[in-house]
């Protein structure tokens, strides 16, 4: 078992490295290049005049492709890290913040690559891969004893329902990260009109599609959590801070969907709601650090 745990950790380390370099590559691709041209003229009086012009150009396509390749590596190594740990623990690694975050790195890699494939745009990677890399840095910062596999406490021994509940949360948060990235790029593009970024319409659609995946998943999180709570605690809703934080997140995305589909909001206003939504996701994700209550066994 020790060997598998070590292999899982080494795979995670490789994933972390791959995502770190991927985020840099994507940034180079998304930010673009500046080409400075200098012209020197000599006047009839013999005076030399030098002028400079700067051209802003799309980023190197190779950097974007390299980013994609490394995100694939990051995803595959994250998958291996999860796989080895699953074999060692004989369950999916979902019981503490180390395991949860490891799964998140895998989920965000998968969700990003799906969106990149469907829409054929790599610019989102500058933000999504950076979030994935940031999550790996968070994992590095966790106490080393969380890397050890420990038996589940009785409250977490809920087999399929725990797997479904926590996995739904991870994939919901990962897709919200994609919508967050699209919202950021939308705001940048609408302010600066950087021509090589994807069109505003496409960015708006990416954000919306990501929410249409994340929102039902988050609904499932609340429902499955309620079913589990009913079995474990005898009540399906306890107004526990972690529950209500997830409800808050759900409501923010409900506002986004209502304003977009019924009020016809789009553009900057919708993008700003998505930023608030992702802030709510982070608030819920790291809630274990400052909430008490029934979810305090998250092991931070």
């Amino acid at each position: 078992m020790e060997t598998l745990v070590q292999m899982s950790f080494y795979s995670f380390a490789a994933s972390s490295l791959a995502l770190g370099v991927a985020s840099l590559s994507y940034m180079l691709y998304a930010v673009g290049r500046v080409r400075v041209r200098r012209a020197t003229m000599t006047t009839s009086t013999g005076t030399t005049v030098t002028s400079s012009t700067a051209d802003f150009l799309p980023g190197n396509i190779g950097a974007g492709q390299f980013g994609t390749l490394l995100t694939w590596f990051g995803g595959v190594f994250a998958f291996l890290a999860v796989l080895f740990r699953t074999i060692a623990a004989e369950r999916l690694p979902l019981s503490n913040m180390y395991e949860f975050s490891l799964m998140f790195v895998l989920a965000i890699s998968i969700m990003y690559l799906i969106f990149e494939r469907i829409y054929g745009i790599r610019h989102l990677g500058a933000i999504v891969a950076t979030i994935g890399f940031g999550m790996t840095l968070y994992i590095w910062s966790l106490p080393a004893d969380l890397r050890e596999i420990t038996p589940l406490i009785p409250a977490l021994q809920a087999g399929p329902i725990m797997t479904a509940h926590v996995s739904s949360a991870i994939f919901a948060y990962a897709t919200f990260a994609v919508s967050f990235a699209a919202a950021i790029l939308y705001l940048v593009k609408s302010k600066r009109n950087i021509r090589w970024l994807p069109s505003l319409e496409m960015l708006d659609d990416v954000a919306f599609r990501a929410v249409t995946i994340g929102f039902p998943l988050l609904s499932l999180v609340l429902i499955l959590g309620s079913v589990w709570a009913h079995d474990a605690w005898g009540v399906y809703w306890s107004w526990d801070p972690k529950e209500t934080a997830a409800l808050f997140t759900w409501l923010v995305y409900a506002v986004y969907l209502h304003t977009r589909t019924l009020r016809g909001w789009r553009g900057n206003r919708s993008a700003i709601i998505l930023l608030i939504g992702f802030a709510a996701v982070i608030f819920t994700y790291y809630g274990n650090y400052f909430f008490g209550g029934l979810h305090s066994y998250g092991g931070v």
């Binding site: 526990d240 808050f248 209550g293």
Partner: peptide
């Protein structure tokens, strides 16, 4: 909901 959630924290 946000106010109620934060009430359960420091």
């Amino acid at each position: 909901v946000l106010l109620g959630t934060l009430r359960g924290s420091d």
